[in-house]
Design a protein around this nucleic acid. Sequence first.
DNA 1: CGCCTAGTTGAGGTAAGTCAATTCACGTGG
DNA 2: CCACGTGAATTGACTTACCTCAACTAGGCG
Lengths: 251, 251
Amino acid sequence: METRPLARKLGAFMALSEAELCVLERLHKRRRTFFAGRDLVHQGQADQAAYILVSGWAYSYKILHDGQRQIVDFQIPGDFLGLRSVVLHVSDHSIEPVTDIEVTEVHASDLFKALSETPRLATAVFWTASRDEAMVVEHLVGIGRRGAAERMAHFLLELGARLSLVGMGSKAGYACPLTQYLIADAIGLSAVHVNRVLRQLREQGMVTFRDGHVTFDDYDSLVEFADFEESYLDQVGPTAQVSAPVLARVA
Amino acid sequence: METRPLARKLGAFMALSEAELCVLERLHKRRRTFFAGRDLVHQGQADQAAYILVSGWAYSYKILHDGQRQIVDFQIPGDFLGLRSVVLHVSDHSIEPVTDIEVTEVHASDLFKALSETPRLATAVFWTASRDEAMVVEHLVGIGRRGAAERMAHFLLELGARLSLVGMGSKAGYACPLTQYLIADAIGLSAVHVNRVLRQLREQGMVTFRDGHVTFDDYDSLVEFADFEESYLDQVGPTAQVSAPVLARVA
DNA sequence: CGCCTAGTTGAGGTAAGTCAATTCACGTGG
DNA sequence: CCACGTGAATTGACTTACCTCAACTAGGCG
């Protein structure tokens, strides 16, 4: 468990050699702590470092000129923070910790060097980035075309699935430090409506979100209700070639 | 102009050497044509090839279980089609041509081989992918937090900016083969409402969309109205800015 | 004790959706 | 050449999902 969460995540995707793990290890330059509510990366900033989240939760968001906020995604341990900012050389969004967080810093130059010298690692990182993009796309679909309750259900399920992959959740539920305001800005609703929708889902016996804990009261009917497809979260990478489970699902 | 649009796009981001251009050239295996309305990639399919769009327009989308469609993005010449599907090894979305299109096919194995043997090319492709992701994020923000008219204005401006980069548009306007139904599914509105919003923008003297042509009647006030920030579309890559050190290491 | 933040609930407003009718351009076959 | 069908755009009338405003509760903490 003191294996870096990122190594664990990438390892689940492709087997990494000793040498590759070593390169990965050397990337983690410095461990830092940031405190809840204090911006880590700011929109428009020219970034020279990305971070890997070790513990705690964060979220990336954009602010519109009229002050509204849209949360793009939440990050949990093992996720990159600001990877896109480094590649694009400027941050198009801000990142803020939800809780106090621990991260390790990765300098842009070290990252590019490591990726060019270790092609398989580059593939693995590219895979991670693609998986993140797939989540953003799914999020987009939800906001664009799902009703409020379905959106909420889908959101809670996706978060649960992601947390399960790093051992922080199960089909029973998970600890969740988010406020209803954060969820509102993530799924494009008002905080008031979030509250109503949560009540509805609770009264229908599907999920309960209370006191920082999400409990799946009836996982299966929630999945059914939310039209939740978790295949896009699968830990299946190129090495696993067209693996049996994928084929089964496609068939 | 018979330069491959992709080479032109990547070239704008970082200067590519002869050798790198040559690798890029060899990627283009086979030129193919697809016809308007016939699926090119299907949701759930296990992909072994991506495509580079040479001419025509396409769109990537997802279908929900209740039959609703959310269009994630439109692709124009120079864009990759299905790059994420290849990296993730399964397509999480479908792609369909809007018009008849010409593409060149890129086999997954060739792509991975080229990227691992030519690190700078990998960086460039990673940059392209990140730029696409930034667009999806901006799209997400629009759907989540902007009103219908602002969303439409922003959408038309973004398309214009992208088309300008490949010489197919200007601040005066551009040819646009999209129907109001496609736009509706892209920006999360009903087709009827799209029509109303277009009328409103036209009557306010900002944009006119008629007969397959978008005309910016007052570009500046449209930008103002839409809160349009085009920085995320900049053709600014690592080479352009802080990059001397980065390049030195990568090279 | 008083203040702040998070959550909860009600009443009423509004942006956008649905349903439906009409027009127009286009192609196709009688 | 015209009748017909089809897909796109347009507009009106009505509905609804979600928002806003506002009041109130409950817990944490200086």
